[in-house]
Amino acid sequence: MSQGRIRKILVGDAQADRVVPPSGFTAQLTLFVSGAMAFLVVFALALSLASGRLADRWSQELARAATLRINAPQDQLPAQTQVALTILQQTPGVSSAKALTPDEQAQLLSPWFGPDIPIDTLPVPQLIEIIEGNPGYDRAGLRLRLSAELPGAVLDDHTRWREPLVDAANSLRRLGLFSILLIGGATAAMITLAANAALAANAQVIEVLRLVGALDSYIAQAFIRRFTLRALIGSAVGVVLGMISILLLPEASDEGGFLTGLGFQGWGWAWPLLVPPLGALVAFVATGTAARRKLRELS
């Protein structure tokens, strides 16, 4: 597209703009659809970015961590814990191994049993937190040695529940991105319908313009400019409202989990700013395609 054409679309031509009469219904429809879709895109973006952050956090935080659970009678627990720590210190690829204190274990159990749990009176297994080095350790080898020396010890490298969670978070991210694509497609379809309605309503105007020597590009441009600007304005309003709504959501907290983390962080706030120009681009392409097709049909 030439610079002159871009300039004409952005700056416009007052005389050319007057040639096509304003069409209230399609104007309002385009503004509303663009605004509503931009609002939804902001939420889909927020969902997608939050899911991405969650997936990254889960995969990074837990990927190199494992837990060793020692089940033994209470009187043998300290000795077996010591044996386990010795084995772990001797295992290549284990960066650190630390037995959780009773307080730390009580804190882990507090969501289920409350904060005042008398942990020393309960037959709670001892947990050892293992941090993997780089390169990592031989899981199968460590399991074999533990089963020989500490039959009651269970090595849990979190794979069983971490992978489905990361998969779920990644699916949620993909769902968010797919929703944005769907919204873009729906916007294009709605604007195409509105443009077609405007073109059909102005068939007589188009015929007169053709009779006095107007090129198709001139006629199409009058509609393209109108719909592109409406989409830009509608999207901008939708994005502002969407961002305000995201701002009003509760702030991220551990208690709230994922739901309170739904929003933008840092440079993530810049992403919604791309929505109005993209909405305008969608309208530009949709109206241009509709106008060219309709003009061929009309004359």
Binding site: Q15, A16, R18, V19, P21, V208, L209, V212, G213, L215
Partner: peptide
């Protein structure tokens, strides 16, 4: 929707 002046000028405009 255009005045006679604008209608006469239409070929110039387009």
């Amino acid at each position: 929707h255009l005045s006679i002046y604008e209608n006469i000028a239409l070929p110039l405009t387009v």
